[in-house]
Design a protein around this nucleic acid. Structure first.
Lengths: 229, 229
DNA sequence: CCCTCTATTGACTGCTGTTCAATACGCCCT
DNA sequence: AGGGCGTATTGAACAGCAGTCAATAGAGGG
């Protein structure tokens, strides 16, 4: 944990030109620094537009060292996406609320606040990352699944909780996550563009309402199905 | 339009080894061929995993020629995405139906059929493409906007058509497009994985029902808002 | 003060996107 | 038929970047 770093400076003379002295960090600290830099860079530019050299230079290290910590550029990128997703999940975890509806609203509000605060990075990570590598797609999908699980857990004990495992309902919930992503992206983009924009409360109400209606719609189809067959 | 191609063959001798004779195509034809190849390759592999050399080899041309038709790899990729999006839009255009509801159902059915038929390519294009270049993101966004416009046009003349331009409703519709994409992706993935899967009719009903409810929900919030303020 | 352990370097490789001057194929004119 | 011309096409050369590896230096311990 010793975050104390000793640096031995040297004089720059005519014979031996000034070289940046090595800065030796502990493994975990270096790793954190690199992931932090990755979040910054990949949050602003597309994957292809971020070079390992640029990261290394920004970190003040050599390219080779980065490959000591991450086997490939994709693995490095995957690590940053994993971190970003973890932060998103953590920041929207409102714990076990007494009332699932209140809990849902709190979670959505935290989600929107997060998206608004990290608009560009959120957009870049969610949009740009997926195509680069199956591994990254898996991470994003698992993050979405986490949200779905959370939603289902919130509604366990509700009247028709038995139907919540039905394929249609799972599909509906997955779709709703897509709805939330698209709507929130549109929201922050509209804010950035300066066009007339609904308030965060309105958007939250929209997302919450949409979820109720989507699930209800799926359940309705389900019971209609059950009544027939 | 002359699609007749004359090929002059040569004998392969010991002194002058067999070389593939040049095949000279007209500009439009070559362009079509390349875009078709692009749809195939980018539909199966991620952007980075498709090399210009591979495309050139598959087309039986030199790498340089491809750069005669497209200035950069990204531009080439953008052209293929544009073509793919155009086909999707065209194949789901059911014309002006008498009843907007019937028209909606027909459009959704065509959409799902298309997605199921081009599952892999659809997934790759929609997921992978966006992050590569702002240009591609613009194309995808415009495609989504086209769907939204179509939906709105279908419901013009409906009772509360005056509210359809409200920011909340536009956001709701954009969100619904995200919903449709996520749900249909989940659907075809579930089919591919062999897990229990709703029928196409069920999914169509889910999408249609969700749209009605989402828009209704957004409008309800709107009128409530109007009543207050 | 030296020794060791390892975080760190930097030069090297190979692949891939991109450029460009040269080339050859097909068409048209005589 | 054949020669000239326009242009589709080539292929070699360039540049930049991901990834490799043997060598190095800096810090901590004996």
């Amino acid at each position: 944990m010793a975050s104390v770093v000793k640096i031995s400076r040297r004089k720059a003379t005519a014979r031996t030109p000034m070289r940046e002295p090595r800065v030796r960090l502990e493994v975990e600290e270096r790793r954190r620094q690199l992931i932090e830099l990755g979040l910054q860079h990949f949050g602003e530019r597309a994957y292809d537009d971020v070079s390992i050299d640029a990261i290394a230079e920004a970190a003040g290290i050599s390219k080779g060292l980065l490959y000591h910590y991450f086997p490939t550029k994709r693995a490095y990128y995957a690590a940053t996406v994993r971190e970003g997703a973890a932060r998103l999940v953590a920041s929207t975890d409102t714990g076990e609320g007494a009332d699932p509806l209140v809990s849902l609203d709190a979670g959505l509000d935290a989600y929107l606040t997060y998206v608004k605060a990290h608009a560009k990075a959120y957009a870049t990570l969610m949009r740009s990352g997926v195509g680069v590598d199956p591994e990254i797609a898996r991470i994003v999908d698992e993050t979405r699944a986490t949200f779905v699980e959370r939603l289902i857990a919130g509604f366990a004990g509700s009247q028709s909780s038995g139907f919540l495992d039905a394929p249609v309902v799972r599909l509906a919930l997955r779709g709703w996550v897509g709805f939330a992503e698209a709507a929130s992206l549109g929201w922050v983009e509209a804010i950035a563009a300066g066009t007339p924009t609904p308030s965060q409360d309105e958007v939250r109400a929209l997302l919450g309402g949409a979820m109720m209606e989507i699930v209800r719609s799926a359940l309705r189809g389900l019971t209609r199905e059950a009544a027939r067959g």
